[in-house]
């Protein structure tokens, strides 16, 4: 019955080759270079390699059961998961609101020098983690004394501590370094969205006496909600994939005492091994799969519950 309906539809319209031509090149490259290698990782998570005999055996879900029920794995995994959540919360509370504020100020007034501001604030985003990690390590290090000197110059010398070396402050410090590095992304995306709001809407608002802040909150913010949605999801994915910053500043052991351990670093250690323990690609593959499921869950929540509630205005 359904088949007949579809067949009828197809008869009405000839095969639309252009859809295939538009889609195929991207889909082919993406499938061969990204999806198939990732599927290979998934496959590895169901196998076990004996460390002495190098014998490969299919073990089903054993790696996952090990991850969930062996205290050796589940403790560090939950620690990393919580650290990652905290890392994400800081980004949502600090990076995105400030990014939106900067973009709003840049677009609201005809400020002289706004091109300079925009370029400068975006600058850190362009730097590699190798540089960012190294610079902040140098600046925060008591050895070089730059941050101590700065705090002393504003009379807060007593506040100085080795921020990256203490368990209580290391993760928060890293989160702020990451905010410093990536604040340009929400700023740019929001700025582009604000610029694409048609003049007529703004003029109409001004005629009705809606200006300044109330104009921003009542009109512009509503119109750019889809962009804010995209930014939140990009932040979520970026944060739950984060690895490089911790790796370059704290090393693969995510010190002090694993207080800056994220899912990415735990994955790296499992995959490639650490001082005492050899690498375990199969267990690593299981952790990678869990990371994927966590991110998938977050994205599904966004796509099915939040995105549907956002009204999209044709501009």
């Amino acid at each position: 019955m359904q088949n007949r309906e579809e067949a009828l539809k197809r008869k009405k319209r000839p095969f639309r080759w252009h859809i295939l031509i538009f889609l195929a090149p991207a889909a082919i490259i993406y499938t061969i270079v990204m999806i198939l290698p990732l599927a290979e990782t998934l496959r590895l998570s169901f196998f076990y390699v004996d460390s002495t005999t190098r014998e490969v055996s299919f073990v089903g879900l054993k790696n996952y059961l090990e991850l969930f029920f062996n205290p050796y794995w589940i403790g560090p995994f939950l620690n990393a998961l919580w650290n990652n959540t905290y890392f994400f919360i800081i980004h949502m509370l600090v990076q995105n609101p400030i990014g939106i504020m900067i973009a709003a100020l840049l677009s609201m007034y005809h400020l002289p020098g706004k091109k300079f501001y925009r370029t400068a604030i975006f600058m850190p985003t362009l730097l590699s983690f190798v540089i960012v990690g190294f610079v902040w390590k140098l600046m925060l290090s008591p050895l070089w004394g730059v941050s101590k000197g700065l705090l002393e110059s504003v009379g807060l010398g007593s506040w100085f501590m080795p921020f990256l070396g203490r368990e209580e402050t290391a993760l928060t410090t890293l989160a702020f370094i990451s905010v410093w590095q990536f604040i340009g992304i929400p700023m740019m995306l929001i700025y582009a969205a604000l610029l694409s709001i048609p003049e007529e809407i703004i003029e109409a608002a001004e005629c009705d006496g809606v200006t300044g802040f109330s104009q921003f909150f009542k009109i512009k913010l509503i119109l750019i909600l889809p962009t804010i949605g995209i930014i939140s999801i990009l932040t979520f994915v970026g944060n739950f994939n984060a690895f490089d910053l911790v790796y370059t500043t704290q090393g693969p052991l995510a010190g002090p005492n694993f207080s800056t351990d994220l899912l990415g670093t735990i994955l790296y250690r499992t995959f490639y091994g650490q001082q005492t323990q050899p690498g375990d690609p199969n267990m690593g593959a299981a952790i990678a799969t869990m990371m994927f499921l966590i991110i998938l869950l977050g994205i599904s929540i966004y796509l099915f519950f939040i995105q549907r509630k956002i009204t999209r205005y044709e501009m």
Partner: peptide, 11 residues
């Protein structure tokens, strides 16, 4: 978007 491509490095 969700999966770091690094996870497929071996492949």
């Amino acid at each position: 978007i969700m999966i770091p491509i690094r996870l497929g490095t071996i492949g």
